[in-house]
Amino acid sequence: MSEKPETPNVFDPFGMMKNMRDSNMENWAKAMTEFVNSDSFAAAQAESLNAMLATSTPFRKLLEETLSKSMQALKLPTTDDFVRLAERLTNIEMRLDDMDAKLDQCLESQH
């Protein structure tokens, strides 16, 4: 059995508004998707990202340096100290993992 085509109920203003919204939304979504896939959008996005980075990076670096110097003056560990510590821990973990692998090999050879 074929389905009857949906006809908008003219006595239901909200139904008509909903249909209008849905059809407009679909067109709007399509237009926006096309826009963000365009060369002009790619160019605008890259330029605005560059502008944002050019403006914010010096401030961020200044803030990081100031914080780092303050922490050093207070004899407190800086972010870089934590980073170095974390890297060393990861190296130790890797060595432990290597030992675990060798232990597994030994156990396997005994079976």
Partner: peptide
Amino acid sequence: GFTKWVNHPSFDPDRVVEA
């Protein structure tokens, strides 16, 4: 979109990572 965005000559991933 991604391919287009990142292939644009003005897009520089090094700047993002540096920041």
